[in-house]
Design a protein around this nucleic acid. Structure first.
Lengths: 120, 120
DNA sequence: TTAGTATATTCCATTTCTTGAATATTGCAA
DNA sequence: TTGCAATATTCAAGAAATGGAATATACTAA
């Protein structure tokens, strides 16, 4: 049974942001859309777990997904969410999750893709 | 047993903000410090309940209290928290809690106090 | 169609949050 | 000291979040 009572939208937003993995996912999407496997590789968590957190973000309206072949790409629906994250970090004085060099099998992680971007 | 694992400070912040009553309390403190009875009157909640939420905000470091006679006054420790609230509202498009005309027995709610402020 | 990869969903046990109720504490005044 | 007002704390039951495990779905390729 989901949350049935109409909730204060501000509270709902904070509820969605109240989880380190979800915040890390949003940070990963600062650079643009990413496929699930990429998020998985970056965060070093199991696929099902990442998918669960993506579902929460999706239901909160913070991210949207788009299928492209076998991969699903997620993006932030409103970049203003980063203003919230930045304001929060300015208050508590912590840093955003920074991407590692981890790669996955998605097209974006293949060398050919980098070539494509460079030459476009 | 409290939360023992060291938590991401950003997450802790959102956890503290994830409650409508706590957000409303912070909004009430935009105009400066307020006594507990005032918050109680404005929000129309029981005293023990307000005190519980104040405890959460206090433990999160978002507010500080100061005793003055029989009354305890709470204030925001860092006004930057309002930037977080404002950014969140800009994203979800909702409004801040606005104070009502409700009054209580605290000095600030007595007519004499208004006089004092006006003449100072 | 079959197999394999990528992703999503459901189920469940555990932990944590919520909030009412009762009670404790602090300060003031008589 | 006694009593009262203002505030804080503790306790407990129900609701919700967490995260692991198993499974389902969607797409591609052969």
């Amino acid at each position: 049974m989901p949350t049935t009572t109409a909730e204060d939208p501000t509270t709902s937003l904070f509820r969605a942001l109240m989880h380190p993995t979800r915040v890390a996912i949003l940070d990963l999407l600062r650079d643009g859309e990413q496929c699930v496997c990429h998020i998985e590789a970056q965060l070093g968590k199991r696929q099902a777990y990442i998918s669960q957190q993506l579902m929460v973000l999706r239901e909160a309206g913070l991210v949207a997904d788009q299928r492209s072949g076998a991969n699903v790409y997620y993006r932030v629906t409103n970049r203003h969410v980063f203003a919230v994250l930045d304001a929060a970090r300015a208050l508590v004085g912590s840093k955003a999750f920074t991407a590692t060099t981890a790669t996955c099998n998605c097209p974006q992680c293949q060398p050919e893709w980098a070539e494509l971007v460079l030459h476009s």
